[in-house]
């Protein structure tokens, strides 16, 4: 049984007369204790998808279509109050900017205790004890739960954020660019921590990042998003070694690889499309070197090309990526 299942999710932002189709027809699922990496360029809709799951979209954003199941409960149809009760208990989030995700005038411990008291039937003393344990768990000195956010370094704060995410014992953690703001050494430590906790607590993790190397090294499965669409989903090996979608191929090519032979970095010509008026057919076709007429005319079906390897491309498997026309 999957912890999270998203079907045909469409989330739009309303800007006056216009609608930004930030997430369009996205379907994927995450199994228990699985790390699912969601990758793509900035602005491709990764964070919007995450906020849709928690239903914490800004006021002008709305889920216009689709269903989101958390343990077979559809969160889209829930009332705001039901949703509020569900948050953190089923799914918690590790924010992109740990720097500002804690209220600067409240002690960190209190902010963690606060959510425990809200989500679990325990008293304050117990919650404080638990918060200390969590601190210990994430590698922070337990007595420092009395510190204020500004007294922590960036890495410490990220650890505290992770501790907070674990506070209500959720089954799914959304890690939205959890290490982007950190330097490389701290990044690896945090990711290692995240992974070990995931194993220990059998957590499902939705790991959102623009950094393909992070995804490649930490995920069981990977989804690649482009311009609000999920273009390819599969096991990490499949997606990285046997890419089916031209965008996936190009994206991987645009990243430096630590291992393997040195090569010239490639870049993808053109810019991501305007999501108010996205291109017809396949949204990637204006930038795709292998595009044909059909790509302009028809939206490619999101299909399971081979077992557990989904793709949305008319010519999946038919393109020789080595040769550009």
């Amino acid at each position: 049984m999957s912890v999270l299942r998203i079907e045909d999710l469409c989330t739009h932002y309303f800007l006056g007369e216009d609608q930004v189709q930030a997430v369009d027809n996205v379907t994927f699922d995450i199994a228990e204790s699985e790390i699912f990496g969601l990758a793509g360029e900035s602005g491709c809709g990764k964070t919007t998808a995450a906020y849709s799951i928690m239903r914490i979209l800004p006021e002008n954003g709305a889920i216009v279509n689709g269903r989101i199941f958390l343990d077979d409960e559809d969160v889209v149809v829930k009332t705001e109050e039901e949703m509020r009760q569900l948050r953190w208990r089923k799914v918690s989030i590790v924010f992109q900017y740990a720097m500002n995700a804690f209220n600067p005038v409240l002690r960190i411990g209190n902010q963690i205790v606060e959510v425990m008291l809200e989500k679990q039937s325990i008293d304050k003393e117990e919650a404080t004890k638990k918060a200390k344990e969590l601190f210990d768990e994430v590698g922070l000195e337990p007595e420092r739960i009395r510190d204020y956010p500004h007294e922590f370094s960036g890495g410490m704060r990220q650890r505290a954020i992770i501790a907070q995410a674990l506070a209500a014992e959720p089954r799914l953690i959304i890690a939205d660019e959890p290490v982007t703001a950190l330097d490389v050494i701290v990044q690896n430590k945090i990711l290692g921590l995240l992974k070990s906790l995931q194993k220990k607590y059998q957590l499902a993790v939705l790991l959102i990042t623009h950094d393909l190397s992070v995804v490649a090294e930490n995920s069981d499965r990977v989804g690649i998003m482009y311009a609000g669409n999920l273009v390819e989903v599969g096991t990490t090996v499949n997606v990285f070694k046997e890419s089916l979608h031209p965008y996936t191929y190009k994206l991987i090519g645009a990243f430096p690889s630590v291992k393997g032979p040195k090569r010239r970095l490639e870049f993808i010509p053109g810019t991501p499309p305007d999501l108010i008026r996205p291109p017809s057919g396949c949204r990637f076709h204006p930038r795709c070197p292998w595009a044909q007429d059909i790509c302009n005319l028809e939206v490619p079906e999101y299909r399971e090309y081979e077992k557990n390897h989904w793709v949305a491309c008319h010519f999946a498997g038919e393109i020789n990526f080595e040769v550009e026309p």
Binding site: L86, R87, F95, A101, F102, N103
Partner: peptide, 12 residues
Amino acid sequence: DYILAARAKGLK
């Protein structure tokens, strides 16, 4: 951001 965080935490 901490207000968004508080909302995500499902606080009242």
